[in-house]
Amino acid sequence: MTALLHGFLLALGLILPLGAQNVFIFNQGANHKQFKKVLPAVITAGICDSILILLAILGVSLILLSLPTLQLIVYIIGFIFLTYMAISLWKEKPQQMEKTSSMTAKKQIGFALSVSLLNPHAIMDTIGVIGTNATVYEGIDKIIFTASTISVSWLWFILLAILGKALGTVDKTGKYIVYLNKFSSVIIVVVACIILKNIIEIIL
Results as ranks from 00 to 15, higher is better:
Val170Thr: 10
Thr83Asp: 02
Ile63Arg: 06
Val23His: 14
Leu167Ser: 03
Ile187Lys: 08
Leu54Asp: 02
Thr69Leu: 15
Tyr176Asn: 11
Ile202His: 11
Ser101Ala: 04
Ile187Met: 15
Ala11Val: 04
Val136Asp: 02
Ser102Asn: 00
Asp49Pro: 07
Thr83Pro: 10
Tyr179Asp: 00
Ser61Lys: 06
Phe35Thr: 01
Leu18Gln: 12
Gly19His: 08
Lys33Ser: 14
Lys197Leu: 03
Leu72Asp: 13
Ile202Leu: 14
Ser50Ala: 15
Leu118Glu: 01
Gly78His: 07
Tyr137Asp: 04
Cys48Gln: 05
His121Leu: 10
Gln95Leu: 10
His32Leu: 05
Phe157Ala: 03
Val178Ile: 15
Gly59Asp: 07
Met124Tyr: 15
Leu67Arg: 07
Val191Thr: 11
Val170Phe: 14
Lys165His: 13
Ile123Ala: 10
Gly7Thr: 03
Asp125Thr: 10
Asp49Met: 08
Ile43Gln: 00
Ile150Pro: 00
Lys106Ala: 14
Gly110Met: 03
Asp125Met: 14
Leu163Pro: 08
Ser184Arg: 12
Thr83Leu: 15
Ile143Cys: 01
Tyr176Ser: 06
Asn27Lys: 02
Leu52Met: 00
Ala147Ser: 12
Thr100Leu: 11
Ile87Thr: 02
Ser151Trp: 10
Lys197Trp: 03
Asn133Arg: 10
Phe81Ala: 14
Val115Ala: 00
Ile177Glu: 11
Thr83Tyr: 13
Ile162Tyr: 12
Phe24Cys: 06
Ser61Tyr: 12
Gly78Pro: 00
Gln108Glu: 13
Ala56Ser: 01
Ile158Thr: 00
Cys193Lys: 00
Leu159Ser: 05
Ala147His: 04
Leu58Gln: 13
Ser88Cys: 01
Leu204Ala: 02
Thr44Ile: 00
Ile194Glu: 05
Val115His: 06
Ile150Glu: 00
Phe8Val: 03
His6Asn: 12
Leu113Pro: 09
Lys106Val: 14
Met97Lys: 05
Leu64Gly: 04
Thr2Ser: 09
Ile203Gly: 09
Phe24Leu: 13
Lys36Cys: 03
Val38Arg: 09
Ile140Asp: 09
Lys107Ala: 07
Ala166Glu: 13
Thr69Trp: 14
Ser88Met: 08
Glu138Ser: 15
Val186Ile: 15
Lys106Gly: 15
Ser50Thr: 11
Lys197Cys: 01
Phe24Gln: 02
Ile195Val: 15
Ala11Tyr: 06
Leu159Pro: 02
Ile188Thr: 09
Cys48Asn: 08
Ile73Val: 02
Gly46Asn: 09
Ser148Pro: 06
Met1Asn: 05
Gln28Tyr: 11
Trp90Tyr: 09
Gln96Cys: 15
Leu155Glu: 07
Thr169Gly: 03
Gly131Ala: 06
Val38Ser: 14
Ile203Trp: 05
Val60His: 11
Ser116Asn: 04
Gln96Asp: 11
Ile144Asn: 08
Gln28His: 07
Leu64Ala: 04
Ile77Lys: 01
Ile87Lys: 10
Tyr176His: 12
Glu201Arg: 12
Ser116Pro: 06
Gly174Pro: 11
Ile188Cys: 09
Thr100Pro: 02
Asn31Thr: 03
Glu201Gly: 04
Ala3Lys: 01
Leu10His: 09
Ala166Tyr: 13
Leu54Thr: 11
Met97Pro: 01
Lys172Val: 13
Ser101Leu: 07
Lys197Gln: 08
Gly46Gln: 06
Gly7Arg: 01
Gly46Glu: 12
Asp125Arg: 03
Met124His: 05
